[in-house]
Design a protein around this nucleic acid. Structure first.
Length: 562
RNA sequence: GGAGCGGUAGCUCAGCUGGAUAGAGCAUUCGCCUUCUAAGCGAACGGUCGUGAGUUCGAACCUCACUCGCUUCACCA
């Protein structure tokens, strides 16, 4: 039985006049385990019982059936419950060892489809740290949602359309060469783009050129289309290298261009509903009643915009996946856009607009300034990952020179550090990029968790990987108790992460468990022959399984040796 | 000006539904490798929880006002 329910029952029996649900909501987990595993504050009973909380607690302890608990004690106005460690340990360890892969699973989602719009880098631009955030948060959410029985669909909504292609083509025709692009596609295209913006400040007529090229592309001009396809495929090749490194794949690469032929219908729908208005030569939907700015559907020149495309995409996803939720892992600075998107869908009469959730994340700055592709101020993801990997390589050479698959582990550790760093804090926090911070391997980092896992594996190897499922798992060792309790919380941690769309909840949990294990490891000799050896090994195995599982939920690998 | 997010230790951040002396990591100083990986463990140092009111038996957490920082507010995405 659930340990908390045991406490609720004991209290409910002793307090027949109080609603059991009220009791349950008041029960808390003391921060300091000196105060027990569960605590019941009696303040709220003082009024109805006309007694001091201390008195209530003192009386309560007499009425509580202490069977099944290690002890129940009074501490001022609190009643503190200490659980039967051996029994709880056996229950939790058994549950983990019986089915490590599925430990912590639950069914919040009833297998409902959840498309996740994530990553979405722009063609012809390098992937930056900003795209990393969207990519790793989206990936982690997909895994977390799977664990609570949703069916996520990872959609890479590539930025493969838009006026920037006009600029790019104009720039390429003016200064570019095929050989140069082939040699180093993204950086070269990027260079053209930056140069275009520089020269464009002096010669605004360049913009007309760019617009003309984009118009050609939209009209299906042969040369423009050819260039577009070429830029796209070269870019995608490089993106795939990074996704491989991160161990991330997608269920769909339908980007912006995919919706080109699906926007007329949206405009038609808006028109049929009488929602379109003309304003300053453009077509808009007024959103006054939502306290939002009007949504620009068509520009003065008739070209469509971002929101039109996203409307088409949202409708397409509803039709294709019949989603129960539709997520967009996109920077916080676009929240206005998503409010508009939902508002327009509402205006169109789609109730499912309420199932669309923008999952925003904080801005990455450098030296306090916003990153800007246009101004060439970017942090290239590829460089960061490579730096991290070579640092890991160096560490391994120093600390574990005999490691067989050193290169593979260097990748797992280096990439793990970067990914974990990105996920360990609340999504919405902004952060200023600091390479040293990102590739750190000590303290609250990914490698710290990986290291704890590797140590646990090392012990199990030394012990000869015995079968522990039949062992007596009633581990009564107080030193192990904090770990046991943490292991028992995995399921609710996952649920909270899913509810809040917040991978950092998992990261924090992994750090806590790793820390508790490292403490245990430092103070308790595990491989000694005594009655509890098998139970200790079971604990080690359970920690190993859960750490691995938690890292997996973050998209971080857990090497057995490092 | 409207909307949103944030202000907790020198730095980066936790703090779940309000509860028992406000917690980590980094940095600094000092201990611990003849026994399971020192990417580790332990100790010290470090805080008027932005400010002021209010609600409450009790507020970092809830309410209001103020203040500072960042984002955003129609022809980029």
């Amino acid at each position: 039985m659930d340990a908390k329910q045991q406490v609720v029952q004991a209290l409910a029996q002793a307090l027949p006049d109080v609603d059991a649900h009220d009791i349950e909501t008041k029960i808390e987990r003391p921060k300091d385990s000196q105060n027990g595993d569960f605590a019941f504050p009696t303040f709220f009973l003082a009024k109805t019982q006309h007694k001091a909380p201390q008195m209530i607690a003192a009386d309560l302890i007499e009425a509580i059936d202490q069977n099944g608990f290690e002890k129940v004690v009074v501490a001022g106005p609190y009643v503190n419950f200490f659980l039967d460690k051996g029994q709880i340990a056996a229950e939790i360890l058994q549950a983990i060892l019986a089915d490590p892969e599925n430990y912590g699973n639950s069914d919040l989602g009833n297998a409902g489809n959840v498309p996740i719009d994530m990553s979405s880098p722009n063609i012809a631009k390098p992937m930056s740290m900003g795209h990393l955030r969207s990519t790793v948060i989206g990936n982690s959410l997909a895994k977390i949602l799977t664990k609570v029985n949703y069916n996520p669909i990872k959609i890479n909504h590539l930025g493969d359309w838009g006026t920037q292609f006009g600029k790019l083509m104009a720039a390429y025709k003016m200064w570019g060469s095929e050989e140069e692009v082939k040699a180093d596609p993204i950086n070269t295209l990027q260079k053209y783009y930056v140069r275009f913006h520089q020269e464009d400040k002096e010669n605004p007529e360049l913009d007309d050129d760019a617009r003309a090229w984009f118009k050609k592309l939209e009209d299906g001009d042969e040369e423009a289309t050819h260039l577009w396809k070429w830029f796209r495929s070269e870019s995608l090749k490089l993106f795939m290298k990074i996704y491989d490194l991160l161990g991330i794949d997608f269920d769909s690469y339908n980007g912006e261009a995919f919706y080109n032929d699906k926007m007329d219908e949206v405009v038609q729908m808006l028109e049929d509903k009488g929602l379109l208005q003309e304003s300053k030569g453009a077509e808009i939907v007024d959103l006054e009643k939502y306290n939002l700015n009007p949504a620009l559907i068509k520009k003065t020149d008739g070209a469509t915009l971002y929101i039109t495309r996203d409307l088409a995409a949202a409708i397409y996803r509803k039709r294709t996946y019949d989603f129960v939720q539709s997520l967009y892992v996109v920077g916080n600075e676009q929240q206005n856009h998503f409010k508009q998107l939902k508002a327009v869908l509402k205006e169109l009469g789609f109730d499912w607009a309420d199932d669309i959730h923008h999952i925003p994340f904080g801005l990455i700055t450098q030296g306090g300034r916003k990153l800007s592709t246009r101004e060439g101020r970017v942090i290239l993801l590829e460089n960061v990952l490579n730096d991290a990997i070579s640092l890991a390589r160096k560490q391994i050479a120093e600390k574990n020179p005999d490691l067989k698959n050193a290169e593979e582990v260097a990748q797992q550790v280096g990439v793990g550090a970067v990914v974990f760093h990105d996920l360990k804090n609340e999504r919405l926090n902004n952060f200023d990029f600091d390479l040293e911070e990102v590739v750190r391997f000590e303290g609250e980092t990914g490698p710290y968790v990986q290291y704890a896992h590797a140590r646990s594996q090392s012990i199990l190897r030394k012990a000869g990987n015995p079968d522990l499922t039949t062992a007596n798992l009633a581990l009564g060792d107080p030193a192990a108790w904090e770990i046991i309790k943490s292991l028992g919380q995995f399921g609710e941690i996952i649920q909270r992460a899913a509810r809040e769309y917040e991978p950092s909840v998992i990261a924090k949990y992994a750090l806590q468990l790793a820390k508790e294990f490292n403490q245990y490891y430092a103070h308790t000799k595990i491989l000694v022959e005594d009655d509890e050896k098998m139970a200790r090994l079971a604990l080690v195995e359970a920690v190993s399984d859960v750490l691995k599982s938690a890292l997996e939920l973050l998209g971080v690998q857990a090497p057995d040796e490092m």
